[in-house]
Design a binder for these strands. Structure first.
Lengths: 236, 236
DNA sequence: GCCGTCATTATGTCTAGACATATTATCGCG
DNA sequence: CGCGATAATATGTCTAGACATAATGACGGC
């Protein structure tokens, strides 16, 4: 490793060297870079180490690797930003506020057709619908409307969502695998505007999230944030 | 590997087995799971294979690994969603429209103080400011306001941004490392509303992006999308 | 010239062993 | 009892060698 006094390189060093060649266009976009074995010889490390380094760069989107075809520099590195999806409580507290939560409504309803479609549910006649408000220092932070499938979240009908937000209950009771997020801007109207204590027609950020467990839908969430809210990607 | 008829397991199989134990709460949140060596013995694979599998799960946020302390199941798996950041052209064409682009304004201006701060520029007296419109089937798709630092993007003053959007030029001329994204909802006003051909006060999605190269700011972009636009996370 | 077959090649993965490194736990001393 | 030195331990990483796998490209038959 680099930390060694031996001068031997670790995979992070190899990755850094490769990154430098990419930045300097020594390996220009579209070009095929030397095979692992050759780089291993050049850098004086084993092929595994080169493999680890190039695999990391490929995951970051810089390289495109295919068996036999070799490793190609991506024409245009597909940039990605990652959004963290924290608990509302953490988000509010991280912003320096005191978190508050109020359950507005709770009902067991027949499964809406669109919902069944989005969550990929079949033969689940009834779902739990919740409506809640998240508060920061007592002021509205976000309005939440949520549906939960009892199929993937057993015991959800018995949970006390007046005491604990759905997100917190789900996190501790249902292991989820994938999240799908959709963000849009809408104008606050009617009930949501009233709950958020903002003017009618104000621009608000609406986040819809579908959470799945092994491909089966667990919950659909529609979050209407108070005006002025920002979503930031996590650095890195 | 699993594809083998040998019955030997590969790292993906080990990861799947571990995932199953996590889902079944055999390894409950907060618990410490057996050390790699032990799992290697149990599964009949080498420690490297277990390491690869557990490392993957740790990257996904399921596990928390620390030397000597062992591997702990995350209390609450931090869910993440990743946003792809495509070229506007690709985004529009992927939506099934014909892409169009119009440069509205181009000027070299003194570096605004706030911009210098956000991009971490020092001693860069002048920057390029662009204003452009992206079209889908001839209709406004997004309004773009952008600043580019000539320090990290040499040659930017000579580029012809009437023929090619800034994004496309940058992608082929400047290797970038990190992107920071911020999303908010605003009301369309004045010039932007006119350009987007929407009513004043309409809710629009505003995306701000800062792109860096090795920590030095390259460009700041402010994209105002036409009403109704949605940002979706990439599955996976 | 066209198409199927086969050898070639670069990456993907696994193994066993070794050493590095960061903590944690323990033990002994004051 | 507190605290610092020390031993133990789990993960992090590297190596060399091996086989698997996918895809290419060349060759040969038609």
């Amino acid at each position: 490793m680099a930390a060694d006094a031996t001068g031997a390189l670790g995979w992070q060093d190899v990755a850094a060297l490769a990154r430098a060649r990419l930045a300097a266009r020594i390996w220009p976009p579209g070009a095929i870079i030397p095979p692992e074995a050759e780089l291993a010889r050049e850098f004086g490390v084993s092929r595994s180490t080169v493999n680890r380094a190039l695999r990391a760069l490929a995951e970051e989107g810089w390289l495109d690797r295919r068996r036999k075809a070799g490793t190609r520099v991506a024409e245009r590195p597909v940039h990605r930003a990652t959004l963290a999806i924290p608990l509302m409580r953490d988000e509010v507290e991280a912003a320096g506020h005191r978190y508050g939560y109020r359950l507005l409504d709770r009902e067991v309803t027949a499964t809406p057709g669109l919902l069944a479609l989005q969550l990929g549910m079949r033969g689940v006649p009834r779902v739990l619908r919740l409506e809640a408000l998240h508060l920061a220092d007592g002021r509205p932070w976000a309005h939440e409307e949520r549906w939960i499938s009892p199929e993937t979240a057993p015991g959800v009908f018995e949970a006390d969502f007046a005491a604990q937000s759905a997100n917190e209950w789900l996190v501790t009771h249902v292991p989820c695998s994938s999240v799908e997020v959709s963000v849009s801007a809408e104008r606050a109207t009617g009930r949501v505007a009233a709950m958020l204590e903002c003017e009618d027609g104000e621009a608000i950020l609406v986040v819809e999230r579908i959470t799945r467990q092994e491909g089966r839908g667990v919950t659909l969430l529609r979050l209407s944030h108070a005006p002025g809210h920002r979503i930031r990607s996590t650095p890195g």
